[in-house]
């Protein structure tokens, strides 16, 4: 399978382990990602906060390039915010002629919105991908209890994402189970992490992160798994107050790609697990060790 790939800005910086793990996993299961030529920032969140048309034009430019360069390929991204903005532009162009006219005039290029925009969860849960994952998982992370955190924008708004279940989604739970892990039932799968407001309203958004972590741990999770670099960063980097102010215990946070990569035999160094803010390798190593597999930390 081949897709046009929109990495998003975080993949080039703070989401280093996510990027390396994604490249590793996609290579192993035979999904080819073709980076969109000269893509630009999707604008989340400030683009659409400032100006509606700008919020549509920024993602539409990259989508139009993708459709021009690779007209046969659907588009995929690994970031929930990018996914929402790209899909929003696609949805608008498809359903509202006036918007599409304005978008095309602004990006100075036709944009037919002919191809779909997917997130990693969509493409990893296709039957072909699931079979390939099963074939490539060697030992697996048997018994590792994880809380699958979807965040907001992988599932909402319904009319844009088309997600079948916005309160209790299952795609990531299915994927981590293929990696041998044990997804726990918990209440905060799609609660907001505060997104960009962790910058401009830090004091009132930090508790959003803490209550997500607390609920994950209350339901027995040893780690949280995400499908978005921004969710991952917020849940991981903002744990300081959680441990100091609320007495919570630090909990590692991984992307779904990292979990798969480790289950497929990637070493800790291969996917830069040491780059995590909260030490991440140990919990994975002990899960692998549970059934006698080694793991180079």
């Amino acid at each position: 399978m081949k897709y046009s790939y929109f990495p998003g800005c975080s993949m080039e910086s703070t989401a280093k382990s996510y990027r390396l793990a994604t490249e590793y996993v996609m290579g192993r299961i035979g999904i080819e990602l073709i980076e969109i030529k000269d893509w630009n920032c999707c604008g989340a969140t400030s683009g659409h906060a400032l100006n509606e048309l700008l919020g549509l034009a920024l993602p539409a430019r990259s989508l139009a390039i993708a459709e021009r360069e690779e007209p046969e390929l659907d588009i995929v991204t690994g970031c929930a915010s990018c996914y929402a903005r790209l899909r929003h532009a696609m949805h608008k162009a498809r359903t509202d002629n006036a918007s599409r006219y304005n978008i095309e005039k602004t990006i100075e290029e036709p944009y037919g919105a002919k191809r779909e925009v997917y997130n990693f969860l969509d493409i990893l849960t296709s039957e072909a991908a699931k079979t390939a994952i099963r074939e490539n998982v060697t030992g697996g992370l048997r018994g590792l209890k994880v809380a699958c955190y979807y965040g907001c924008l992988n599932v909402r708004p319904a009319e844009v994402t088309g997600a079948p279940d916005r309160e209790n989604p299952q795609a990531m739970d299915e994927i981590v189970a293929l990696a041998g892990a044990d997804p726990v039932d918990w209440a905060f799968k799609t609660e907001c992490c505060g997104a960009a407001h962790q910058n401009d309203a830090a004091s009132v958004t930090r508790p959003l992160v803490w209550r997500i972590l607390k609920n994950a741990q209350a339901n027995g999770a040893e780690a949280v798994v995400t499908a978005c670099p921004m969710c991952n960063l917020n849940l991981e980097m903002r744990q300081d107050g959680y441990t100091k102010k609320t007495g919570g215990k630090a909990i590692p946070v991984f992307s779904v790609s990292e979990l798969l990569a480790v289950a497929m035999g990637a070493s800790a160094g291969r996917i830069a697990l040491e780059a995590h803010h909260v030490p991440a390798a140990k919990v994975l190593a002990s899960a692998l060790r549970r059934h006698g597999e080694g793991f180079a930390i």
């Binding site: 800005c9 975080s10 080039e12 910086s13 703070t14 000269d38 630009n40 920032c41 604008g43 969140t45 400030s46 683009g47 906060a49 400032l50 920024l58 960009a196 910058n199 401009d200 309203a201």
Partner: peptide, 20 residues
């Protein structure tokens, strides 16, 4: 909010992408 949004846009103007 205004500061964050403006810094964000300035970033896109400079790089086309967001420099975190």
């Amino acid at each position: 909010s205004k500061i964050l949004n403006e810094v964000f846009l300035a970033n896109i103007r400079m790089f086309g992408r967001n420099h975190e």
